[in-house]
């Protein structure tokens, strides 16, 4: 059904009683799982989860679990960009993650999510494609990032972004030996890490009535009027925005949403630094002032 976008008919129904409870708790600045409106659920990151991938990461934010795997391939460069490698990001919402996810080619939700994650990485050049050249005009690295949502617990986007970036950091390129005109790729010997310049974080803000909440859980996602996600580099520049869902924000709400989103980056960065950068020995990256 890729030809048309149709209003979804299988929106999860949140019981009205629950809805009232959620709303009244928000009036008191709390959420049903005890969080404050600007709090994230616990984040766990495990590197190297899929051993046959060139790099991988399994990430959990609350109940949402996403597995990202990276595969690199040596290929001829695209004719219009002969001096750089290529990044291809895909995302799937397989049936194992939720009863409403259907088997088949990626639907508009999966496509939108993959493109938002792709732009977050590509636009600020978090992965330096120019450093993915093996032999100029002849051979480059194609980096395939496949994001698989394993368990849907709300806020797929932020979890997927962390997983993709972590998997990319974890990826090592095979050793290349060039003898004259012969290029030998030694797949079993992993040497250099992918040329990642910095991580990127996406922060999703949901709007329920006049309340803005970070990292919506499944039930909260079923209730939000709409969502807006901001992507940031560690220097706190905005490198992506995507408003999702129907409903609107006033300009004041957008201003407030961006402020609260930006305030979440230092914490996300800290988690990422401890669990990924430090354990991989990557140094020299710091988060800017909020």
């Amino acid at each position: 059904m890729r030809k048309l976008s149709i209003t979804p008919s299988t929106n999860h129904i949140v019981p009205l009683i629950k809805k009232e409870v959620i709303l009244s708790m928000l009036e008191r600045e709390t959420r049903i799982d005890g969080r404050k409106p600007n709090e994230y659920r616990p984040i766990s990151i495990e590197l190297g989860y899929a051993k046959k991938a060139d790099g991988s990461a399994s990430v959990r934010i609350g109940d949402t679990a996403v597995l990202a795997g990276v595969k690199v391939e040596d290929r001829e460069p695209f004719p219009d960009v002969p001096d750089q490698g290529n990044l291809i990001v895909s995302l799937e919402l397989p049936p194992i993650a939720h009863e409403s996810f259907e088997a088949g080619p990626p639907d508009e939700n999966a496509i939108e999510l993959s493109r938002v994650v792709d732009r977050s990485i590509r636009d600020p050049k978090a992965l330096d494609l120019s450093k993915l050249v093996i032999v100029p005009n002849k051979k480059v690295w194609n980096v395939w990032v496949d994001i698989y949502v394993i368990d849907y617990g709300g806020n797929i986007l932020d979890t997927s972004t962390v997983a993709a970036i972590a998997a990319l950091y974890h990826t090592k390129l095979p050793r290349v030996e060039i003898e004259g005109d012969t290029i030998k790729i030694l797949k079993e010997t992993k040497e250099a890490r992918l040329p990642m310049r910095f991580p990127v974080f996406s922060v999703s803000v949901g709007k329920i009535g006049r309340h803005l909440i970070l990292d919506p859980s499944t039930e909260e996602e079923g209730l939000v009027d709409c969502k807006i996600s901001f992507s940031y580099t560690p220097d706190l520049n905005i490198v992506g925005i995507q408003k999702m869902g129907n409903g609107g924000f006033t300009m004041a709400e957008i201003d407030a949403a961006e402020k609260v989103a930006r305030s979440a980056v230092p914490n996300l960065f800290k988690e990422f630094k401890t669990k990924v950068l430090d354990s991989l020995g990557v140094e020299g990256i710091d988060v800017g002032k909020v």
Binding site: D123, T233, I238, V239, G248, F249, E258
Partner: peptide
């Protein structure tokens, strides 16, 4: 209605440029 119903960004902006 004073409602923003579509908002996307690709590229880079500082929070000041954004506003």
């Amino acid at each position: 209605m004073g409602q923003v119903v579509l908002l996307q960004l690709n590229g880079t902006m500082s929070s000041d440029e954004f506003r």
